[in-house]
Amino acid sequence: MTQSETEAQETLTNAQGVEAVIVSQDVEKWYDNGFHVLKGVSLNIYKGEVVVIMGPSGSGKSTFIRTFNALEPYQKGKIEIDGIEIAHDLKNIEAIRREVGMVFQQFNLFPHLTVLQNVTLAPIWVRRWKKSKAEEIAMRLLDRVGIREQAYKYPGQLSGGQQQRVAIARSLAMQPKVMLFDEPTSALDPEMVREVLDVMRNLAKDGMTMVCVTHEVGFAREVADRVVLMDEGMLVEENTPEAFFNNPKEERSQKFLSQIL
């Protein structure tokens, strides 16, 4: 940190000299009804890193990661994506969203489009790729998440696990710099959780920068570089998975872990 400050570099780097993809400082947010949901949250995500955010329900995890692609506006603080600050007038909003992929708990696939059309839609209309190029890349991605055969089906014809894998492929098709996952396995039947986690694990192995809200402890232990605990709109603890699960520093972390383990 001191190194980057003294040299006044453009981009923020961590101790190993890796640049930050997401910089957030003292982010505060109130909902329209006056509820103070984020109370000054700071978290930097560095390139190639997997950060898992945990915390009790209602603690503001979804709200927090949704500020990263400007799905939720915030009132105070600063968020930079790949060096571009999210302006409060939302001017550069589409440029930022192009670089940030998001996978939702409820998949949110487009039911009126085929799997292939779901994946090629944004590359064709936003990146302005030719249809043939978009489809070629989409097929490769569908292959990677293991559902190439389902390309011409509609989302409603697929199982939950398959739908979530399509959703991941759809986000990847935009070639984002960072992927956000908001409880991607919470809406799935238990037997389908693994196929989705496997895809995410491979993604992490290939070097994708990922921010995951999830309560899958096995996944966090194995894949995460850092685990963050959020409670009542604040970051309570930030630790390595090893330390976080074996001997957490904070009392609130211990309490949370005793509830989910």
């Binding site: 692609n69 799905l71 589409e94 440029a95 969203r97 192009r98 940030v100 992929g101 998001m102 939702f104 409820q106 949110n108 696939l109 487009f110 839609l121 944004a122 209309w125 936003v126 959703a167 759809r170 986000s171 935009m174």
Partner: peptide, 14 residues
Amino acid sequence: PRGQTEAAQSLGLN
């Protein structure tokens, strides 16, 4: 559902 709009927006569609 609102998720449809959010998914489209998060892909960068205006």
